[in-house]
């Protein structure tokens, strides 16, 4: 690993200024679980690391029945996994975190880092997009908010400008009769990066039979998390039926764009998308019917 200068701003504004000053030679450092690997491998040799861990405003999990859930960028995977507040309001997040990487990574790795790094083989983005999360971004000229979906541009590339910092993730309070299921699928060790990640979310009409909103979000099958919009359109506004789920799964399988790699061929991944959507949908549907204010 090459030497670098370590900077420790005390505020978001100061951090943004440092990023503006050093441009491409600087990189934000939080948990370091991904960055330290590429630095050790020699793929990335920043001259400056801007450690944002000392910035107090970036921590904490807050919940407000109206606004929903706010996660500071520095909230760790382990906090999501163990927070009683999360377990009460968004148990899906703590459940999935149990399977993310390993405990050492979960203790160090942060939510903000996970999203802003835009690693293609990861889990959180699919769930958060299915829950219609948005993010708050701070820059030298102030804050802006965008939907999480808009963050992802390409492998390891986001729409953040070089001097911007992701500061918060906002997950809206789920509408009544909402259920979500996520299946993390590994084609080798259970702690390997996922081969596929499939989130299915339904919000039902009052009849508990008709799908008002459907979200089918696929991970690891494209450079960015991918909404299977044809599958969603097929399910929305109609009665939930097993046959229709099968058709939607077939749509999802066609509309994703996996590449053949060490974790499976393109053909296999398409087949698995079909299987996983078919498996996740009925569970999401049952959860939506049994909705008690949490997902």
């Amino acid at each position: 690993m090459k030497n670098f200068e370590y900077l420790e701003p005390r505020s978001v504004q100061e951090a943004c200024q440092l990023l503006r000053q050093h441009g491409e030679e600087a990189r934000i450092f939080a948990g370091g679980t991904s960055l330290s690997i590429v630095m050790k491998q020699g793929f990335f040799q920043p001259k400056y690391l801007v450690n944002i861990k000392k910035i107090p405003d970036l921590t904490g999990i807050r919940w407000d029945p109206k606004r929903g859930l706010t996660l500071g960028a520095l909230v760790t995977h382990r906090e999501l996994e163990t927070s009683p507040l999360i377990q009460e309001t968004f148990p899906i997040l703590s459940q999935i975190e149990e399977d993310v990487a390993n405990i050492r990574v979960r203790v160090m790795g942060t939510v903000g880092g996970n999203l802003a790094y835009a690693e293609p083989l990861t889990d959180l983005p699919q769930i958060l997009i299915a829950l219609e999360a948005s993010i708050r971004v701070a820059g030298p000229d102030g804050d802006r908010t965008m939907s999480l979906e808009e963050l992802f541009v390409d492998y390891y590339e986001t729409s953040l400008r070089p001097d911007e910092i992701l500061t918060e993730v906002l997950v809206p309070t789920p509408p009544p009769r909402t259920g979500i299921e996520y299946i993390r699928f590994s084609s080798s060790s259970v702690i390997d990066k996922p081969c596929l990640g499939t989130a299915v979310r339904f919000t039902l009409e009052e009849d508990l039979e008709t799908v008002r909103t459907a979200r089918v979000v696929l991970g690891c099958v494209a450079p960015t998390p991918l909404r299977a919009r044809q599958a969603e359109a097929l399910l929305e506004g109609k009665r939930y039926e097993v046959q229709r789920v099968k058709e939607a799964a077939a749509f999802a399988s066609r509309e994703c764009k996996p590449v053949s790699d060490l974790r499976g061929s393109e053909a296999y991944k398409r087949e698995m998308v079909r299987v996983l959507v078919t498996r996740a949908a009925p569970r999401a549907f049952e959860k939506a019917r049994a909705f008690r204010g949490q997902v």
Binding site: S188, S189, V190, I191, D192, L262
Partner: peptide
């Protein structure tokens, strides 16, 4: 060799 590391050369974990 395209996987000379324990990210892409996968070893069993305790959970396997």
């Amino acid at each position: 060799l395209i996987n000379p590391n324990f990210i892409d050369y996968v070893l069993p974990s305790l959970l396997d």
